[in-house]
Simulated assay, not measured.
Amino acid sequence: MAYDNTCKYLAETYAPNFVRWLLGISSTNVSVLKTEIIPEPIRADALILLQVDNRILHLEFQTLPYSKPPIPYRMLNYWTILHGLYWCEIEQVVIYLKETTSELVFQERFTYQNTRHSFRVIRMWEEESTPFFNDPVLLPLATLTRSDNPRELLEQVAQQIAILEEPAQQRNISAAAEILAGLRFDKNLIRLLLREELMQESVIYQDILQKGLTQGLTQGLTQGLTQGLTQGQQQGEANTIIRILTRRFGELTPDITDKIRSLSIPQLENLTDAQFDFDSVGDLLSWLES
């Protein structure tokens, strides 16, 4: 979730830059719409809505393509809700961050009986890196683009960040680059090439801390970035699945939440998939006990 939240922060903080990248237009009349207009439980934490004049840019950053309901149906559902509220053009873009061979990342439309709904899909590992170097805001995403020499790519990103003149922007872009690079690069290499102290001072880092996603990351900055990121990811995923289960079944007992927080990252990922088959808290307990 830290990866999706990082992209959400970048897109909302530097909205005109993302509009220029994805729509090819330069506009200062860009506003961020509240995602609460999308009713639960369909709304995703990584949902981003940017309004440009009389047009909406709907972005979804996805680390993995697995979703229930499936992403094509979600995009149709979002479009229907947004169009009913605003009656304007809606450009929908799903951006997959982590390379995968899953056929799901190639789905660009929802099709059922007489219903057809299309949306754009960007697979970051297929994108040329050069356009992302033309805008400092997009440098974190450059770490995920196509390259015959990934290490050289990360070095180039680090060099471009190092010459940014505005301190606050440099800290934030550096932090975002460190987080997103974790989807592709070894943590030790990231620490070697990117300045760790910039990450600690960044708004992104502080924002993730406030959301309770990186208690482990805080420890990791003093004990080792790798350990911290792992712990932070584990706690973030545990908090997310607890929030989802609470919405479905009501307040969970402390004993249940403690068991969930003790799960490893692979176990949490399995629980994320398994919970769609649960009909009650009893099913959840049976799964935890097994």
Rank of each mutant, 00 (worst) to 15 (best):
residue 238 A to F: 00
residue 103 E to C: 05
residue 79 W to A: 15
residue 145 T to F: 06
residue 230 T to Y: 08
residue 226 T to L: 06
residue 12 E to F: 11
residue 161 I to C: 03
residue 263 L to P: 02
residue 234 Q to D: 05
residue 11 A to V: 01
residue 283 D to G: 10
residue 175 A to E: 02
residue 32 V to Q: 03
residue 5 N to E: 00
residue 37 I to A: 07
residue 53 D to Q: 12
residue 215 Q to C: 07
residue 287 W to K: 02
residue 184 R to D: 09
residue 40 E to L: 02
residue 41 P to V: 03
residue 47 L to Y: 14
residue 225 L to M: 05
residue 65 P to R: 00
residue 289 E to D: 12
residue 143 T to W: 15
residue 10 L to H: 12
residue 222 T to P: 02
residue 134 N to E: 15
residue 77 N to P: 01
residue 75 M to T: 04
residue 268 L to C: 02
residue 187 K to C: 11
residue 263 L to F: 02
residue 288 L to F: 03
residue 271 L to N: 05
residue 132 F to P: 09
residue 49 L to C: 06
residue 170 Q to F: 08
residue 54 N to F: 10
residue 90 I to D: 03
residue 44 A to C: 11
residue 206 Q to W: 02
residue 215 Q to N: 12
residue 118 S to I: 03
residue 211 K to P: 01
residue 13 T to R: 12
residue 148 D to I: 08
residue 260 I to P: 07
residue 285 L to R: 11
residue 143 T to Q: 13
residue 109 R to W: 14
residue 124 M to C: 08
residue 162 A to Q: 14
residue 232 G to P: 09
residue 172 N to D: 15
residue 86 Y to E: 10
residue 72 P to L: 07
residue 45 D to Y: 00
residue 84 G to E: 11
residue 258 D to F: 01
residue 4 D to S: 08
residue 104 L to D: 04
residue 255 D to F: 07
residue 224 G to L: 11
residue 200 Q to G: 10
residue 138 L to Y: 13
residue 258 D to M: 04
residue 105 V to A: 14
residue 9 Y to P: 00
residue 102 S to N: 01
residue 66 Y to K: 14
residue 41 P to A: 11
residue 237 E to L: 13
residue 168 A to G: 02
residue 146 R to F: 14
residue 94 V to P: 09
residue 116 R to W: 03
residue 110 F to D: 06
residue 103 E to H: 14
residue 226 T to Q: 13
residue 110 F to M: 02
residue 249 F to A: 12
residue 260 I to Y: 01
residue 228 G to S: 14
residue 255 D to K: 10
residue 180 L to A: 10
residue 264 S to A: 03
residue 216 G to S: 04
residue 169 Q to W: 13
residue 93 V to D: 13
residue 189 L to T: 14
residue 79 W to M: 03
residue 4 D to A: 10
residue 84 G to C: 07
residue 274 A to N: 09
residue 134 N to V: 04
residue 9 Y to N: 07
residue 29 N to G: 06
residue 23 L to T: 05
residue 115 T to P: 03
residue 181 A to N: 03
residue 78 Y to R: 06
